[in-house]
Design a protein around this nucleic acid. Sequence first.
DNA 1: CAGGATCCTATAAGATACTG
DNA 2: CAGTATCTTATAGGATCCTG
Lengths: 125, 125
Amino acid sequence: MAERKKNSTYTRNEQCIIECDLTYAVNKINGRWKILILSKLESGKMRFGELRKEFSYITERMLTLQLRAMEKDGLVKRTVYPEIPPRVEYELTEMAMAFGPIFKQLSEWGGKYRFPVKEDLEEKL
Amino acid sequence: MAERKKNSTYTRNEQCIIECDLTYAVNKINGRWKILILSKLESGKMRFGELRKEFSYITERMLTLQLRAMEKDGLVKRTVYPEIPPRVEYELTEMAMAFGPIFKQLSEWGGKYRFPVKEDLEEKL
DNA sequence: CAGGATCCTATAAGATACTG
DNA sequence: CAGTATCTTATAGGATCCTG
């Protein structure tokens, strides 16, 4: 994500990634759509077109960029089949699969706090 | 974080926040330093200066910006004591505390995958 | 089908100096 | 002490058109 600077020093963030497990993890999944995409890919490998249909609100360009960034980060494996028309499949690596339970909890957090009203109602039942 | 546009429509991201628990949660903690700060504040309320000392690699400006954003987002409570010299304390709200276990798991994830070598060594023990 | 290329805007982040 | 203010750069995100 963040590249090395010309002067061979690190940005503040890079310095921290080197030192901190939490920052390292956070940086892997930072990016507006990454968690969403990873979360979707948990259910199995998908073609580019399937992902595009699933995330119609993400531009093709961003979808590509985020997927490639994750590939570089070792979270996603990209397989190109030498056919015509082309077929490309994306699947999670083991390290990405390990995020599974975390995303599930995140989603639960969202469900609980997104509409406080919802919570109030549930408590009344 | 993202503001309403002049034309009264939503950005792609905002549209998604409205529909999706996971995106809602992700957006609460998106920002280069938020998780780190939240994670630190878990151990109790802290003064601005303490946070600044703890995160010496974050500029004062970014620290302020992230804290204020989180305050607006309902994750952090900011208390100003009308004294001279001024004293300001930051503490987590209940909804932020609920992130606790998630951050812990994230950190564990980082610990496991940050240095694959480390893992190999551990397996040999 | 799965993108790449190009151009543009918005937002994040950082350096530095200053203040009630 | 706990910020603000100002300026600048870097990065993210998006619109649109093109292609092997």
